[in-house]
């Protein structure tokens, strides 16, 4: 059996004294893809922030490529190959689009040309400042900026939230292209369960900070009753 890219062992984490996540364990193989689903406020974003090193870990271990990174600060995790697309996008408002892309770029197959190919809109707006972009463009930039660090694992925290349906489709298509051509693994936190499940191989569902379901994405997608029970969402015809 090959070593997983990422594994969490019984992780208990939160902010200060407040515990948000408890007993979280899972493995993600290289090139694996994982959807993290659940209702609002169950700890999905906290899981992403915990992987990035922004929460306090009270118990458990995070192992990345065989090395314990539980106590490592965020910039070391990023340099070790974890890319982060934050929920609030967090574009650098005073940097141009191109500067946003290059400021933290690291060598690899994702270059300026490659991300402009994935998001042609960003190429058109390369001289604009970060605060002059629409919500959809900001989201494209947030994803492209993370890709420019050439991560082995990309964390996407609700990348489709608050966007118009047409933009959601465009971005979902881009994420699909990205995962098809990319070498890396990714974890996708998403309210749009149908899209998230169709983009990933495996899924887990959180409920009050604990994992209440984990299994193949296709299986969950094919079981609307289970989905409804787990996250209370009735899917449109998938």
């Amino acid at each position: 059996m090959t070593e997983p890219l990422l594994s969490l062992r019984d992780v208990r984490a939160g902010y200060g004294a407040g515990i948000v996540l408890d007993g979280i364990s899972f493995d993600l193989p290289a090139r694996g893809s994982l959807a993290v689903l659940g209702r609002n406020g169950v700890g999905k974003s906290t899981l992403i922030l915990t992987l990035m090193g922004y929460t306090q870990i009270a118990r458990g271990r995070i192992v990345w490529r065989g090395a314990d990174i539980t106590g490592q600060p965020p910039h070391r995790r990023a340099r070790a190959g974890i890319g982060w697309v934050a929920q609030e996008r967090e574009i650098f408002a005073t940097l141009s689009v191109e500067e946003n892309l290059t400021v933290a770029a690291r060598d690899g197959s994702w270059t300026l040309a490659a991300v402009y190919d994935l998001f042609p809109r960003l190429a058109e707006r390369r001289r604009n400042l970060g605060n002059q972009l629409s919500g959809g463009e900001q989201q494209m930039l947030a994803i492209a900026r993370a890709l420019m660090t050439n991560p082995a694992l990309l964390l996407l925290d609700e990348p489709l939230e608050g966007l118009a349906p047409i933009v959601v489709e465009e971005l979902a298509a881009a994420i699909r292209r990205m995962t098809e051509q990319g070498e890396g693994a990714f974890i996708l936190v998403e309210q749009h369960a149908d899209i998230a499940l169709s983009l990933t191989r495996s899924a887990l569902v959180l409920e009050r900070g604990r994992i209440v379901h984990s299994g193949p994405s296709a299986q969950l997608l094919a079981d609307p009753a289970a989905l409804d029970r787990l996250i209370g969402l009735r899917l449109a015809e998938a």
């Binding site: 600060p73 910039h75 990023a78 340099r79 650098f92 500067e99 933290a104 993370a146 660090t149």
Partner: peptide, 13 residues
């Protein structure tokens, strides 16, 4: 970038 958003700057390495 660090002046603008320190947390994100760290998160990008």
């Amino acid at each position: 970038a660090a002046v603008n958003n320190q947390r994100m700057a760290r998160g990008l390495g």
